[in-house]
Amino acid sequence: MEKLLDIDYLIKSYPHILKYLPVTIWISVASMVLGIAIGLATALIRLYKVPVLGPLSALYVSFVRGTPLLVQIYLVFYGIPKFIYYFQTQHGWMTGIDVNYVSPEVYVLLSFSFNLGAYLSETIRSAIESVDRGQFEAADAIGLSRTQTMLKIILPQALTVALPNLGNTFISTIKDTSLVFVIGVIDIMGEAKIIGARGLAYFEVFIAVSLIYWPVCIIIERVLVIVEKRIRKYERSAIS
């Protein structure tokens, strides 16, 4: 009789898929870090209404939010080598790079941080805007420079506001990394597809991969709750 589910195959495939969890985590963490850097820069450019860069940033954010991540991955993967090749042949630039040997992980990082930067810039911008004007005035009054004010006063307060959003974005990113196999990076999803094809047991491997994503996201969620409590401790009002 045909079995609904080949449990043995599921169990056997699980450790093989799990071996690739570091790839998933590594890509998520690295693109999150780069994304925050890009997002912060973009947010500041838009907040300070920097000429030329301001409108360009708005265009960038609009484009990223208006196109699917999958399309952006393909654009980076197929587009960047073409650009590099063009500059090499036409201008003699960047001749140190051999486009045939660039790891696809590089394109994954580029496209993910490009994508995250746009989303996070909005998160960061609204968080900075939510900080009380009086905090800027008090910093001005004691003579802090704009950079000092940002680093010591505004960004720490904005971080508390942004943290729940940053956490959600990170969890989404973990799940979005399931797309990276389309350009040949083997993460847990990629390995699941490979093993699934080998045994023609797709349903089993996708259950297995779900049972990796799910607990990972639960753990991250828990950690975020703890971090948020920590970081919000200055807001706790208790007159003693």
């Binding site: 009380d132 009086g134 905090q135 005035e137 008090a138 910093a139 001005d140 009054a141 004691i142 003579g143 010591k152 006063i153 720490p156 307060q157 508390t160 200055y234 807001e235």
Partner: peptide, 19 residues
């Protein structure tokens, strides 16, 4: 001017993230 003046605000405006 800012270094030669000290300002006390109506709403205190203490830096909330600092002790």
């Amino acid at each position: 001017l800012r270094l030669s003046t000290g300002m006390v605000f109506q709403q205190y405006h203490l830096f909330k993230n600092l002790k």
